[in-house]
Amino acid sequence: MTAELAAPTPPVLTSTTAPATARGPAEVGLTVGVEEEYHVVDATTLEMRDDAALNRAALRGALGASVHAEIATTQLEVATEVCTSLADVRQGLRTVRAQAADAAAGVGATIVAASTHPFASWEQQRLTARPRYLELFEKWALLALQQVICGCHVHVSVPDLDTAVAVMDRARPYLPALLALTGSSPFHEGVDTGYESYRTQWFARWPITGATEPLGDGAAYRRVVEGLRTAGCVDDASNLYWDVRPSERYPTLEYRIGDVCTSLDDAVLHAALARALTRTLAARARAGLPAEEVRPELLRAARWRAARHGLQGSLFDPLRGELVPAPAAVGDLLAMLRDDLEDRGEWDEVQALAGQALARGTSAARQRAVLHRQGDPVAVARMLVDESLRGVR
């Protein structure tokens, strides 16, 4: 449920093709782009806003090339331009957040960059009248109607499908740490769920979410996609909602594990880590190092714990089979990526952003603190609006 990054007639990844266009270079991790989904809320009441005119404008592309309609009429999705530096990512996110906010302001609304709204219900939204979304309803019934969640998707350039799959296979143990840093969905249907990322749990009802088993190569990936198509779960690979997947249209690997980062700094950090992880793991694959073996049950446990506790308490390391304090787990990830980040001149910025995230906690933790302090979910929504647009204008 995502509008892919805007680009002119992009190539489709195959197991042998290595496209090298201006928008899709062959070098692993040379480019990165970010998609974010937002809730549209009334600028005064901060309730979720279903505005038919705004939805129609988004559907026909009248809000600009970067702002799109999403599955729910109360959502907008944005996509940055293809970026080559973290400065590009930051400026790209500033631009698209401002564009979405300006579009919403035209109907007396604004945006919330968080994966759930603090007090809204799915019954306050409608299904966007796009054939793709109507087909999802025909296939998934109530699940499609209840998608009152938003996500963040980071696209990292890869040369071919085999490389994408090699990184997917090796990324699985490290995805929970990425999730823990992004939690922004503590509330659902007006209830404090106790989770930092309840979006992860809500979305898990779909059988095409989560992490895959190791696939080995592009041919195996295609066989799995064909099996899911035969089963009636997907029409094609663009319908997969795995935590990380090859893009069907672009020469990228797409990380879908994260909640929407309310803070612009956290969004830049998330993109930086996804790109560095891709480069590091692709290098390991080229060196002939195998994917690390880890039981799927332990991976699910690690993912659940990251969604439940975020940066508070401990995360489960599925490779060592032990609990690790969240700051130490993030530190371990940074240590693994340090050589790559230093080679690219990104280490100082990423280290500073990670330290800042650990010091102030996730969006979910900040939302919960506002609710406990003020006892008013509207105050939480107000904080989310303010933080979503901080540093944007």
Rank of each mutant, 00 (worst) to 15 (best):
A87E: 15
A166M: 07
A69H: 14
V89A: 06
A105K: 11
H153T: 01
V78I: 15
C83G: 01
T84N: 02
F119W: 13
A103E: 15
D88S: 01
Q124L: 14
R56L: 11
G108E: 04
R170N: 10
L142P: 03
A58P: 01
G61V: 03
A87V: 13
N55F: 05
A171C: 07
T128V: 13
F137N: 08
V154Q: 00
R126W: 09
T73G: 11
I111R: 01
S121T: 11
P131D: 12
R130F: 11
D169W: 13
S115M: 06
A104C: 12
Q99L: 14
L54N: 04
P118T: 08
A62C: 07
V165P: 09
S115D: 02
L59A: 10
G92D: 05
Q146Y: 03
E70S: 04
E138Q: 14
V148C: 12
V167G: 00
R60L: 05
Y174G: 04
V82H: 00
L76N: 01
A177I: 15
T74R: 04
Y174F: 14
T116M: 09
T74P: 11
L46R: 15
Y174N: 06
L179G: 05
D51N: 15
L143F: 03
A113L: 10
A103D: 13
Q124F: 12
A109V: 06
I149N: 14
E138P: 04
P173H: 04
V112M: 14
M48C: 14
H117D: 07
T110M: 05
T74S: 04
Q125R: 14
D169M: 07
P176C: 12
L134H: 10
H68T: 03
Q99W: 04
L86G: 10
D160S: 14
A65R: 15
A104P: 04
L161Y: 09
G61R: 01
D88C: 00
L175G: 11
R90Q: 13
V112F: 01
